[in-house]
Design a protein around this nucleic acid. Structure first.
Lengths: 120, 120
DNA sequence: ACGGAAGTACACACATTTTTGTAAGTATGA
DNA sequence: TCATACTTACAAAAATGTGTGTACTTCCGT
């Protein structure tokens, strides 16, 4: 007799679902911005850093590695000195970036109202 | 001679743009899940807590207040004892929730591949 | 009938965990 | 000396969890 499937359907509302971790990577403070920035094309590490206001080298490197591990970002290192590394989105990365960008744009577009109606 | 506008266009890539904070609220660990959970309709505090696996009372209350302040969630308290409080989405909240949900679904749908191709 | 337990929607103090920032170091060419 | 693309150690800041209290009501057993 077969056992029933119990975790075959990913669900972020479920504490144990690994989709939680992936979602956290893309919705993380810098992950979101990296995806948005890379939508316009390939960027190298320091260009990306200049593009994303306020990110430290440490956090940029760390966030990039998470997104790379999840398969949203591709890292291409050219073995030259000084170092030259390019970052761009994978096909899946583009899809994710599009959704994230849509969300960010919606917020940007309604920012006036959001701030205006705040009491605090 | 007129001064040029400098911060009229919200931009999340800009460190000083207030859209950053709002984006962080909706993409926060529990904010995302609250929005997704409330898409199905009104829920009370403890029902919401049961729906979202792993959230503590403290974090749920805190995250709800941020989303309420930003105008995405509406809180309706019935002055009875024991307390009865309903939470649901505002029109803008629905729009935001839809985008967040789309993102989460995309990740859920590709979770298999994401995990499969991981080296770490 | 009476004590006790559970449910409700939080707030608050405190401790711990996680995240994030800072500064320094690396090897080399322009 | 600066720029490149990081890494690592250390420190500070932020997020999160835990346990307690509240002001009742309803349900339970005895």
């Amino acid at each position: 007799m077969k056992k029933m499937a119990h975790d075959l359907i990913p669900d972020v509302l479920n504490d144990r679902c690994p989709s939680r971790a992936v979602l956290n990577h893309v919705t993380s403070r810098w992950g979101v911005l990296i995806l948005i920035a890379l939508q316009d094309g390939t960027l190298r590490f320091s260009a990306l850093r200049r593009r994303i206001g306020g990110v430290s080298e440490r956090m940029l490197a760390q966030s990039l590695r998470l997104l790379e591990d999840d398969g949203f970002v591709r890292r291409t290192a050219h073995p030259v000195v000084p170092p030259h590394v390019d970052y761009d989105l994978t096909p899946l990365g583009y899809e994710v970036a599009a959704k994230v960008h849509a969300l960010a744009s919606l917020i940007e577009g309604n920012l006036g109202q959001i701030i205006a109606q705040r009491k605090t």
